[in-house]
Design a protein around this nucleic acid. Sequence first.
DNA 1: TTAAAATGTTAGCATACTATAACATTTTAA
DNA 2: TTAAAATGTTATAGTATGCTAACATTTTAA
Lengths: 138, 138
Amino acid sequence: MNKKLTESLENYLETIAFLKRENKIARVKDISKMMGVKNSSVNIALNVLSERGYVIHERYGYVDLTERGQIVADDIQKKEDLLFSFLHNILGVEKEIALKDACKMEHTISDETLAKLIYFVGKLDNKNLKEPVKKKTK
Amino acid sequence: MNKKLTESLENYLETIAFLKRENKIARVKDISKMMGVKNSSVNIALNVLSERGYVIHERYGYVDLTERGQIVADDIQKKEDLLFSFLHNILGVEKEIALKDACKMEHTISDETLAKLIYFVGKLDNKNLKEPVKKKTK
DNA sequence: TTAAAATGTTAGCATACTATAACATTTTAA
DNA sequence: TTAAAATGTTATAGTATGCTAACATTTTAA
């Protein structure tokens, strides 16, 4: 059985995915710097993520995501992007705050809410771009 | 200095406030039952909340909120209500899931996002109730 | 090519939260 | 009014997360 990842572990995956996109590789030091934690904390997290099949990490070597780890990272990134866009572009929340809020919410939002939000955002776009909104008749 | 409360401690305050509203009083057993934890866990949380001035709890007696505790509980409840309403009434997320999501988000949403959401919900209501929406002219 | 610097790892400790089990107090009902 | 039941508390332990300090390895630059 595979327990759900904690928020912290999800953040490690997300960070590793980001570093791989940016630098092609991810190192312990980059991860700790980006996340504001110590190398030792990164190591411990990596051990857990390795055991559970989300990352590959050879001693003193680079850190890589397994397919399973990449899938989780992509999923979270997708949530973050949508939440950030909703908060910033639709609600008008300031960039930094919108990002901070999105980074917390991405770990807790349910698939159902995510789906509804995607639909809602799409509908809003249509309204704004294509036609005036009609009052819904009861 | 007063550190921010953890999500867990905020939940204890929220539950105590709920029980006081419903039953006039809050007891350790009611709290543990509602939160799905053991009495011993409640006790430890109450000790922390007492020390930090959020609750009053005499040994073997009822649990009460200080003014400070009540203010925090009210604040969180306000956030929960707004988030639930947005998720359920506007996005159309099913009741139980909307509540579950709101109960997580209420601990992380920033004041800025909260304010923007209140404004947005108000605007939507106006649109739906008073007049068709005009496309915003650039 | 080797010593210093940079990076990575491990051991031991701290905080937050929850649980179980043993014990204490209060409430209840016979 | 007192024994049983209900409720509350404490001691001890486990999981998750982070830190510092000591140590190991790799990279670098002289």
